[in-house]
């Protein structure tokens, strides 16, 4: 068995990983092997980052772009959860719905969110609707799948016990199926939150106002690679923060929920 490292040790190893990454990046960029305009150094990116925070680029400061992205993301994710979780539960409960929806869903869910970009723009426009639809298409499948699996894995005896004590369909769903599949739903929401955030850049390819993805597209068309990298770092950091927060929530709920 391997020894479990302590918190201090873990932090030190994590820091070492980051240090190594930045050292290699700096080394390659400073070596002149690639032109500065193609591969900026970490300090170039840091300088650009400070400038983006201070002065507007493409109409807004970095914080404003980020806020626009987060707002868009939250709407897409909330929509996916609000439709996906109930749909998955109902598919797990009603055989007919399972037979009708499951095969269709299994095929559609493999289409990458990016593939929806042209249709999202055509059908829902480049304002609010289109980008939200792309985030939705990324976040939706794990919501459905986790609620469906959760409902299918609920102990059949609990359902029968509820039925023989007078519970109808609605009550079985509300008092047995939902609480019984909650751990699975929470895991699914965490995956969904991650995939939704990953779809953000794709969603903002078609945006014409603000957002980190929009900032990156504008940076790219100006050949400002440092700006693109700032966008990437922002997306990575926010995604990481979302995941850490949801992991925490997941652990709390599962600890409270475990029957044994």
């Amino acid at each position: 068995m391997t020894r479990r490292p302590g918190i201090a040790e873990t932090a030190a190893l994590t820091a070492a990983g980051f240090a190594f990454f930045f050292a290699v990046w700096w080394g390659v960029a400073a070596s002149g092997w690639l032109p500065r305009a193609v591969l900026p150094t970490p300090s170039d990116v840091a300088t650009t980052f400070m400038a983006l925070i201070r002065d507007p680029f493409a109409g807004y400061t970095f914080q404003q772009h980020l806020a626009a992205s987060i707002g868009r993301y939250l709407m897409g994710f909330a929509l996916a959860a609000a439709i996906g979780v109930p749909l998955g539960l109902l598919m797990g409960w009603f055989r007919i719905l399972d037979d009708v929806v499951s095969p269709l869903f299994e095929a559609v869910r493999f289409i990458a969110p990016l593939a929806w970009v042209p249709f999202a723009a055509l059908w829902f426009g480049t304002g609010i609707g289109g980008p939200i639809m792309i985030i939705f298409s990324g976040a939706f499948p794990p919501c459905v799948v986790s609620a469906y699996r959760g409902a299918k894995l609920v102990d059949q005896r609990l359902i029968e016990a509820a039925q023989t004590h007078g519970a109808g369909s609605l009550r079985v769903i509300a008092e047995v199926l939902v609480p019984g599949s909650l751990p699975s739903i929470i895991s699914g929401l965490r995956v969904s939150a991650g995939l939704g955030w990953q779809s953000l850049v794709g969603a903002e390819l078609i945006v014409v106002s603000a957002g980190v993805g929009y900032l990156m597209v504008q940076g790219q068309s100006n050949l400002a690679t440092a700006i693109v990298m700032c966008g990437m770092i922002g997306i990575g950091a926010v995604g990481f923060a979302i995941d850490v927060a949801l992991r925490f929530v997941e652990r709390r709920i599962k600890a409270q929920w475990s029957p044994a």
Binding site: D155, L158, E160, A161, V176, P179, G180, P259
Partner: peptide, 8 residues
Amino acid sequence: QQFALLPW
């Protein structure tokens, strides 16, 4: 036999 109580 297995009681089947709702754990929550």
